[in-house]
Design a protein around this nucleic acid. Structure first.
Lengths: 217, 217
DNA sequence: TAGCAGTGGAACGGACCATTCCGGTCTGCT
DNA sequence: AGCAGACCGGAATGGTCCGTTCCACTGCTA
């Protein structure tokens, strides 16, 4: 309990400050909780954040609202990482560091795995489209670098991210390490190799993973 | 109507036959349902099987019992496929066909993903141990063939199977195709390649994925 | 034809959860 | 100083979902 010493200047003190700080605390807690279990109860978030349920409902109209927010944040993160990577000079490096960052931040769980639990906004649709464009750009540059096997296609990225997100152990830090390893294996598998035969079956198609976004009834 | 003519020989008719047939129908339905959603309600299985709930409870003491049975079957399937593959002459082929079969049958979802929903029997423990031995044997043979990259370790198989099981679209047949593709990528990634750097981070350890088997409370 | 294995499905009781509501506390303003 | 209201903790509410039990019924089987 900081007393009334600092008043107006500093980054807010007292009740207001606590409230403002809670904004972040709650969002962080929500991210952690729903990352661990997409259908965790709201109360779990409140507990994790160390606040009451009211603090949550003061900020979000309901669970769906919170989920949507979280998912949208993840989407934005994805876009941001893609843009950042795209700014780099080396084609292959841009591709791999983008994937590494996205895997590290578990953006996939934050977006795809939360899909269907809320009705998306129009803006999310736009962001998703933009994300797809950027991913394609990254992919094309990777292909241009010549290090990508020729029968790999853009939607393979979906498979790759899903695979990495599936790796999961109780300890988050260890999870990150194992995912990095898995990513390395997958990237090696998608790289040009002299002998390897072609990948089997029809390659994944563009919208083939969108089914998750259909509202679950 | 078929009176007491055929009594013991023929595949049974009438009430008894129906019952015997239901055994299989129910098990199939249960597999399909729980593969799709490990926490599906019992009623979903009954519906899918086209029988009443009683038909289920006549055969299994409860949900846990059914799940355990299903899981054990999966485990046995795993062992059977491993033994079968081990009998083949070519080291690398034995390894890859084993994996393909296990992935096709979705044995991973049947075992690991159902873990923690029931208390395992002692026999399952034995079978699990045997499964691990066989997997290791297969892995060592693959290594002996020289086609496996040197920094791959046995527990990487767990990562691999988890990854493949994570691939999932509404259509089961398409799911199988996509998983085959994913498996191909992963195997390529685990194969010996001239330039590739070493895999990052500490490799997965032996019991590192056993946490799922701890009873969820 | 009596009896019962086998069954369908309603009913029960409990667990779980989103959301609302009711005091209470502290603050910023007058 | 004092008060209106922002903010909050957490109990209470109402509803859904699900495992399991129960009971009436059917048609073999002996």
């Amino acid at each position: 309990m900081p007393s009334s010493a600092e008043k107006s200047t500093a980054p807010l003190a007292g009740r207001r400050a606590q409230a403002a700080r809670n904004d972040g605390v709650i969002l962080d807690a929500a991210r952690a909780v729903f990352l661990d279990d997409p259908k965790a109860p709201i109360a779990a978030v409140a507990d994790r954040a160390g606040v009451g349920i009211s603090a949550l409902y003061r900020r979000y109209a309901g669970k769906e609202d919170l989920l949507r927010q979280l998912c949208h944040d993840g989407l934005r993160r994805y876009v941001a990482e893609a843009e950042d990577a795209l700014a780099g000079p080396d084609d292959w490096t841009a591709f791999t560091t983008f994937l590494a960052r996205v895997v590290d931040a578990d953006v996939h769980s934050l977006t795809v795995h939360l899909a269907g639990t809320f009705t998306p906004t129009e803006e999310m649709g736009r962001d998703a489209r933009r994300a797809a464009e950027l991913a394609e750009a990254l992919f094309e540059r990777a292909r241009a670098s010549g290090r990508l096997r020729s029968d790999a296609v853009v939607p393979d990225l979906g498979l790759l991210l899903e695979s990495c997100a599936a790796v999961r152990v109780p300890d988050p830090e260890r999870t990150r390490e194992l995912r990095r390893r898995q990513l390395a294996v997958l990237l090696a598998g998608l790289s040009t190799v002299p002998d390897a035969g072609p990948l089997p079956g029809p390659p994944p198609a563009a919208g083939e993973f969108d089914w998750r976004w259909r509202r679950r009834e």
